[in-house]
Design a protein around this nucleic acid. Sequence first.
DNA 1: GTCTATACGATGATAGAC
DNA 2: GTCTATCATCGTATAGAC
Lengths: 192, 192
Amino acid sequence: MEKTLTRKDLIFKEAAGLFQSQGYVGTSMRDLATKVGLKPSSFYSHIKSKHEILETICNQSAARFLSGLEQIKNSIDDPFDQWIATVDLHISIAFENPSAITVFNDEWRHLEGDSLTYFLSQRKIYQQGVVGVIKSAILSGKMRDLDPNLVFNTMIGATRWLHFISSPGKASAERIAGQVQELLLSGLKKES
Amino acid sequence: MEKTLTRKDLIFKEAAGLFQSQGYVGTSMRDLATKVGLKPSSFYSHIKSKHEILETICNQSAARFLSGLEQIKNSIDDPFDQWIATVDLHISIAFENPSAITVFNDEWRHLEGDSLTYFLSQRKIYQQGVVGVIKSAILSGKMRDLDPNLVFNTMIGATRWLHFISSPGKASAERIAGQVQELLLSGLKKES
DNA sequence: GTCTATACGATGATAGAC
DNA sequence: GTCTATCATCGTATAGAC
C-alpha cells in the first residue's frame, strides 16, 4: 500500500480542485502550475496533455461508482436493500472526493474522441446496472412502481448537491445522509 | 405584445444553447457568430461584452423563479399546497427553457464583480422564500420534519436533470412531472 | 449594422540547456 | 525532471470603411 502522493497524483488532485471552482476550460496550465509549484512546461514530464488530466479524473470516478455497485451486488441479496446501499454509495462518494465528483458531473463533456466514447459507455453500463436494481426492487413488491430511469435520474440529482458542502463533520455528514435517505424512501408527506 | 425576436434576443437564445453544450468559457464569440450568422465584431453593435450575455441569461432565469414564487404565494393559502406548486414551478421552468436553466445552474460562477454579487443576492432571496414555505408546511403538520435547507437542495437536485430531456411531448412531460412529484411526496418505499 | 482588418494578451505545448 | 525561451493559435474586443 503506497501512501505517498506521487507528483502525478498531486497534479490530478490540484487539477480537480481548480476544475471544480473554475471549470476545465477556465483553468489554464499556468493556473495549475502556480498551484502545484512548478513551471507549466514541467508538467509534460508527468502527463501527456491537459486533456489527459480530465480523462483520468473522469475515468477514476466512473470506476469508483462501478466497483461500488459490484460490491453491493455481491454482498447484498435483497434488491430493495441493494437500492438503499446504492443511494448510500452516492452519498459516500460525494463526501469522500467532492472535487472529483464535480468534475465527473459537470466537466466530462469536454472529453473528446475515444475518451468521450469510453466515458459514455462506462456511464451507460452503470446506469443500466442501477436500473436493474430498481427493476428488481419494484418486482419484489417493496418499491413503488415508477419509471426506473426516472428514479435513477432523480436520485442522482437529489444527491448531487452534497459535494458542495465543504468538509462536513462526520456526525453532520451522517445526519445529512440519513435525512436524504428518508426523503427519498418515505417522501415529504406526513401521514396523519 | 411583441412576438418578433429582435436580433439581440436571437443572440441570447443561441448563446444559451452554446453555453449549455460547451460551457461559457468553452464558447467563443467566433462560435456564436457562426451560429447567429454574423461576424464576431458585429455583436458589439448589440451587446457590450460576452459577459453581458451570461449576466442577462442568469438574471432572466432568476427573475423567472422569483416571480413564479410570488405568484404562488399570492394565489395559494395552504403552505403544503404552496410547496407542491413550487416543485411544479421548477419542473415547468425546466421544460420551458432548458438551455437557460443549464446556464443558470452551472455557468453563473463565471459571473464577476457586481453581476456575481447581484446574482447571489437574488438566489439567496429565492432560497429564503422557498425555505419559508417549507417551514410553514412543516408547522402545518402536513410535511415531515426535515431540515428545510436540505429539503430545498434535494428538490432542486431532483428536478435538475429534467432540462436534459430534449423537447418531450406535452403528455410525456406531464407524466414525468407527476412521477417526480409522487416520488418527492410519497417516497419510493411501497407501504404493504 | 455589418463588414475587413487588426490589436494584443492568454492559451497549450515544445525545444533544448542544465 | 525542472527550468528558460519560444511558438503557433485562438481569445475578446476595437477602429474605421461602407
